[in-house]
Design a binder for these strands. Structure first.
Length: 848
RNA sequence: GCCCGCGUGGUGAAAUGGUAGACACUGGGGACUUAAAAUCCCUUGGCCGUAGGGCCGUGCCGGUUCGAGUCCGGCCGCGGGCACCA
């Protein structure tokens, strides 16, 4: 072989690894264990660059930890339930299971050539009955432990297709297929009581010190702990038997400036009025328009309707406040009623201006008397402001203190009760869809809602389903719904809702420790392998998936499926940036966007000459078709080039925009490494060189810096140092033995990134066994110490000179040398030195 | 709308508060070659200067500091999430 040929090298070494069984995870009490996990993929059918980036990062960690002596668990599986399979069924008439398993086979075949150190014997898909049956068993256990309940909740309803829509299927307030405006409609749904753990999920974030701060902050804000007060406003006249309107506020310090009340359209008072007042009914109907997503609700135009009712102000009884129905008030949070304070809340101010409601202030900035204008006065909570004859008796104080004082003052007079509330809502898991884990319960006319017997699990999805009409195929299946009541044995109806796919991904990490166990988990295996030491995935999962997993681990502990040590299942988390790409679109006859794959676009045009609209780079997603196929890169340059390339340039936490150029440059570099190893292998045995000491120092330094880079997820910097070391080695005139030893070190350091090439180089250098199984190199500390250091000298903060001094020179001597430096003397031009700062080993700053 | 990030040469980027641009890509110049490809060498933030060298420069405005890409405050732009996309 006279040139670098990955198509020959790579299959050869993958076969060698398989033959030696090097990636099978084996519990070994004599070694520390390490569990590295990348977020498992949805089996779309093709791997994309985001997958390559994610799994290569995990592989670098797994391979490095293995070389450092750990028993490593590095598994792979498939997050296989979800809507795309049903869409494929509708569009192409395929069976969702067949489609999904074919996609898994295709993607596995694309992943294997990457040379990932995965224990494939542990692979499973969440749509395997073997897996979801265990999930059903845990659902039943959770029911028994009071973690599951049913209640009415709103969904997006397409009134034409008569079906529930996912938020993604609501586009500009309309159903994606029917194009008809969607409505919010209530259905009885299944819920997990995640709110039982609100306080704990929040408090435990402090212990997740190896998670990114931003993720912990996002989760904390999502859980949203607030301290406020629940208080009653006396109704001027009772409605529907209610004499008071109860509302919750986190800003009772602004109570004096309340000028109206706003209640949710679903509030009991609004409902009572709607029964007799057609205008109220029409308004509440109007409020039901649009989707359920918070973004849709929060950005919708604020609408209100005056009910004509009013309440008395609890502290200033001579003041009355009108009650409005507002589409921006959420029934799910607090009591579904708020007081409006336009003086100190911008949204309330906009609402007050629109409906000509009064605006007053509860406080103003010190020295000012009136702040009513087009902007609400909302100073930071720690800014001191002047309260206007405030009820608490406090005047000049901060909002933070005034809130506390208000709560105390009102509690003392029985006007309200201080309360801690969380924004977090219970987890609605019901989906009116086919391709998900069936909820294992039966509805019996005599016994009510009854869990299925565990011996009847799994409750399997029927295979003979049709997608020719919208809606849930389970509902219209001729026989599947009919079941015997597990309790009385009588005729009963099977639940046709399936579980949210987030349930599937909330415990797969535990299943990987014993994927074939007859129970959901195996106590000994879970005890050995849990927790996940390093979890790696996209930052887009920072809240939902990770929060649900943290809850589910606690639920699994409560139901006896996980030990207490595993209630925080992920010790360390790394959130990689996304791979982004430009989006190419044209418009169909109705003006709706049609997306095009990058491979179908050349210089801004389709093959038929149509010009495409180029939209700014965004997360690669199937729906926008801005995806690139890594298989093309692997076919042209080999897996090692693809692996090196996705690690090399961008820091892993940052988004990287995929561009076609660059892979070739990586291939050239790997070719140089290969050629260098051939040259060194062919050196005569007895050659004596002059650079042995420098080479040994360079190897030690490279080993230290690359180990550190990998350990801190700075893969791009580790690769920069690999370039450095390779260049040094390529130019060096070292003795044969030292050159070969240096090249072996290079092979070891490259092994996590480019394992195939590393094996080839290792073998050429006469390394023993597989480099994949060689112990990670440890540098000699003596070779890492420098004896001189170059110190820049700044004059008034600008770099003007530099001096080279022994590393151990005292600060006093450095000062003298600096002041004697001729550039320093020239720049000072006789000015006296006011101050001299010497930072040992770093810098000297002369202040004149 | 709310929460969280990010912003440095032509490009990807580096820089425990301490020499801004390491390491690469691209471009330019050269060597080798009949020629090209490949390979190797030099060069590559902007402006001024023949040169020694100087000035400017990390999205914008302000602040803290001997010293700010880095810390603080306020903007602008872009991205992620917002509970039924996964």
């Amino acid at each position: 072989m006279s040139r670098y040929e990955p198509s020959v090298i790579e299959p050869k070494w993958r076969e060698a690894w398989d033959k030696a069984g090097v990636f099978a995870a084996k519990a070994d009490p004599t070694r520390p264990k390490y569990y590295v996990l990348e977020m498992f993929p949805y089996p779309s059918g093709r791997i994309h660059m985001g997958h390559v980036r994610n799994y290569t990062m995990g592989d670098v960690v797994a391979r490095t930890k293995a070389a450092q002596g750990h028993a490593v668990l590095h598994p792979m599986g498939w997050d296989a339930f979800g809507m795309p399979a049903e869409n494929a069924a509708m569009e192409r008439g395929v069976n969702p299971a067949d489609w999904t398993y074919q996609n898994i086979a295709d993607m596995r075949a694309q992943m294997k050539p990457l040379g990932l150190s995965i224990d494939w014997s542990r692979e499973f898909a969440t749509c395997d009955a073997e897996y979801y049956g265990k999930q059903q068993a845990m659902f039943i256990d959770m029911m028994a432990h009071g973690l599951v309940y049913r209640k009415a909740a709103v969904v997006n309803w397409d009134p034409v297709d008569m079906t529930v829509l996912a938020n993604e299927q609501v586009i500009d307030g309309r159903g994606w297929r029917s194009g008809s405006p969607v409505e919010r409609r209530e259905l009885t749904q299944w819920f997990f009581k995640i709110t039982d753990y609100s306080a704990e999920l929040l408090a435990a974030l402090d212990g997740l010190t190896d998670w990114p701060d931003k993720v912990r902050l996002m989760q904390a804000n999502w859980i949203g702990k607030s301290r406020g007060i629940e208080m009653d406003f006396p109704m001027a006249a009772p409605v529907a038997g209610q004499t008071v309107l109860t509302c919750y506020s986190t800003r009772p310090d602004t109570l004096r400036a309340a000028t109206f009340m706003a209640i949710a359209p679903e509030h009991p008072i609004a409902r009572a009025l709607a029964e007799t007042d057609p205008a109220v009914a029409a308004f509440c109907e109007e409020c039901r328009r649009g989707g359920t997503s918070e973004a849709a609700i929060e950005t919708a135009e604020k609408l209100g309707l005056d009910t004509g009712l009013s309440v008395c102000h609890p502290i200033y009884p001579d003041q009355t406040l009108p009650i409005w129905i507002g589409n921006f008030v959420l029934m799910e949070y607090g009591t579904g009623a708020v007081f409006g304070c336009p003086g100190h809340d911008q949204r309330d101010l906009d609402f007050a201006r629109k409906y000509h409601l009064p605006v007053v202030n509860a406080f103003h900035l010190p020295g000012e008397t009136n702040s009513i204008g087009t902007e609400a006065l909302v100073p930071a909570k720690d800014v001191t402001v002047s309260y206007d004859s405030h009820f608490t008796g406090l005047t000049l104080t901060t909002a933070h203190d005034a809130i506390e004082a208000s709560i105390d003052w009102m509690e003392a007079r029985g006007l309200g009760k201080g309360q801690v509330k969380y924004r977090l809502r219970d987890w609605g898991i019901s989906r009116q869809r086919y391709w998900g884990c069936p909820i294992p319960v039966v509805h019996c006319a005599a016994c009510g809602v009854v869990p299925e017997r565990k011996e009847n699990l799994p409750v399997r999805l029927p295979v003979d389903v049709t997608f020719d009409v919208p809606g849930n195929p389970l509902d219209r299946h001729p026989t599947w719904r009919h079941a015997a009541c597990p309790h009385c044995g009588g005729d009963a109806r099977r639940e046709t809702d399936t579980m949210d796919t987030f349930v599937d991904s909330s415990w797969y990490y535990a299943r990987f420790t014993a994927p074939h166990a007859t129970e959901p988990t195996d106590a000994a295996e879970v005890d050995y392998w849990m927790n996940v030491d390093q979890y790696i995935g996209g930052v887009e999962h920072a809240i939902l998936h990770l929060l649900y997993s943290r809850f589910f681990a606690r639920a699994m502990h409560k139901t006896g499926h996980l030990p207490v040590k595993a209630i925080e299942p992920f010790n360390a988390l790394f959130t990689q940036g996304m791979v982004t790409h430009e989006i190419y679109q044209t418009r169909d006859g109705a003006g709706r966007p049609v997306y095009h794959l990058p491979e179908d676009v050349t210089d801004g045009h389709l093959a038929d000459g149509t010009a495409v609209e180029v939209i700014a780079s965004a997360k690669m997603s199937k729906s926008k078709k801005n995806v690139v196929d890594p298989m093309n890169i692997i076919a042209a340059f080999g897996a090692d080039t693809a692996r090196w390339f996705v690690l090399s340039d961008s820091p892993p936490e940052r988004d990287v925009e995929w561009t076609a150029s660059g892979a070739e440059a990586t291939f050239k570099h790997l070719s140089r490494v290969w050629a260098l190893s051939v040259r060194i292998a062919e050196m005569p045995d007895g050659h004596i060189g002059t650079d042995d000491i420098a080479l040994n120092r360079a190897a030690a330094r490279a080993t230290a810096e690359i180990s550190q880079g990998i350990n801190s997820f700075a893969f791009n910097k580790a690769i920069a140092r690999l370039y450095d070391f390779t260049n040094t080695l390529g130019r060096a005139n070292g003795s044969t033995a030292v050159m070969r030893a240096s090249m072996r070190t290079l092979a070891q350091l490259m092994q996590p990134m480019t394992p195939h090439l590393a094996e080839e180089v290792w073998a050429a250098m006469g390394g023993a066994g597989l480099v994949t199984q060689a112990a990670w190199p440890v540098p000699d500390p003596a070779l890492l110490v420098d004896d001189t250091v170059t110190l820049p000298i700044q004059i008034n903060g600008k770099r003007r000179a530099e001096i080279s001094v022994p590393t151990d020179m005292s600060a006093a001597e450095v000062e003298m040398l600096a002041l004697a430096n001729e550039d320093v003397i020239r720049f000072l031009a006789g000015q006296p030195v006011k101050k001299l700062i010497v930072v040992p080993g770093r810098i000297i700053n002369v202040v004149a």
